[in-house]
């Protein structure tokens, strides 16, 4: 999937993946896509909840070799 920016949250625990995802989105424009990589399994549900509550769209959510990959499209 194409993306405009990447944020690697590997090794970070709650709430850093979410809080820093929010920060990464700040300087992006509407419609752009942020790729987030996380190793915290709690991030899977948190990232969906973040999308639901902020209006950003979680385009996909996959696991590859112990890493969770998210594509978040900015509102």
């Amino acid at each position: 999937m194409n993306f405009d920016k990447e944020f690697d949250a590997s090794g970070l625990s709650c709430p850093l993946p979410i809080v820093k995802t929010k920060k990464s989105l700040t300087d992006m424009t509407s419609g752009q896509v942020l790729k987030v990589i996380a190793t915290d399994c709690g991030a899977v549900k948190d990232m969906q909840a973040f999308a639901d509550q902020t209006g950003n769209t979680l385009l996909s959510n996959t696991e590859e070799g112990g890493k969770y990959i998210f594509f978040m499209q900015k509102k």
């Binding site: 709430p15 979410i18 809080v19 929010k22 509550q53 902020t54």
Partner: peptide, 11 residues
């Protein structure tokens, strides 16, 4: 601090 930063991230 965890709850405050998360809530702020959620708007």
């Amino acid at each position: 601090f965890i709850l405050a930063s998360t809530a702020a991230a959620l708007g």
